[in-house]
Amino acid sequence: MLADIEEFYRLDRLPHIWCPGCGNGIVLACLVKAIKELKYDQDKTVVVSGIGCSSRASAYLDFNTLHTTHGRALAFATGIKLAKPELNIFVITGDGDSSAIGGNHLIHAARRNIDLNVVIFNNNIYGMTGGQYSPLTPKVQKATTAPYGTIERPFDLAKLVEAAGATYVARSTAYHTRLTTELIINGAKNKGFSVTEVISQCPVSYGRRNRFNTPAAMLEWQREMAVPVIKARSMAPEELEGKIITGELYRGHAPEYVSEYTKLTQRLKEEAEGV
């Protein structure tokens, strides 16, 4: 156990149920380290998750936690933020949970620019249900529902949320632990909708079908494929084919939803009192 962060875990629930070599534990530790570095009060921090392997994470954490319904973590988180804007809210969601079942919640939460910090554990597959391909499974890669390789183009989730209105968008991998922590910290400091996509590994449902013989091979693949965003800017699109662009990808400015809502209620209250 990483002794310096164990105060944030429900130790009686560990060891966790994730498969050997699963990246979820690694990415979760990065998130916990980020919360520790941010010095957020444990009782004023909320972790909301949806459904899926990664969403199981909330059960292991000693914050205020909600393990909600499939794809709806952002809807629950939105409610919490509106009711208690002083709370620091982190949303843990997987690639399927965020981009398929919860796709609409994701784009509309981004459009509102509500002050939530989303960490997407992207392992490119529906692991828990047996390895069906998700909207983030790379083209030609195999899944139980794509035994000859998927013919669908995956989403570029970072571009999607940027276009939808998120004001902080970043990407890292499970291999790049320190970068992941740093990006989550920066996302939390952004007053608005922050998304950090972390490429993770599912050795059992994805790796085995796609010629990754070991979990370590998947981490090494992440290291090899990662291109820092500064370097990527000077590379041609064909050179970036299949690469993972990492770092802070986008930062924007837009009115934050809870602030706008507070302003509205304030104005209406004043008008009512003035009558």
Binding site: M1, A3, G21, C22, G25, P215
Partner: peptide, 11 residues
């Protein structure tokens, strides 16, 4: 090793 141990088994 410790940072990449998914099971928090290494210190």
């Amino acid at each position: 090793c410790a940072e990449h141990c998914p099971d928090y088994a290494i210190t």
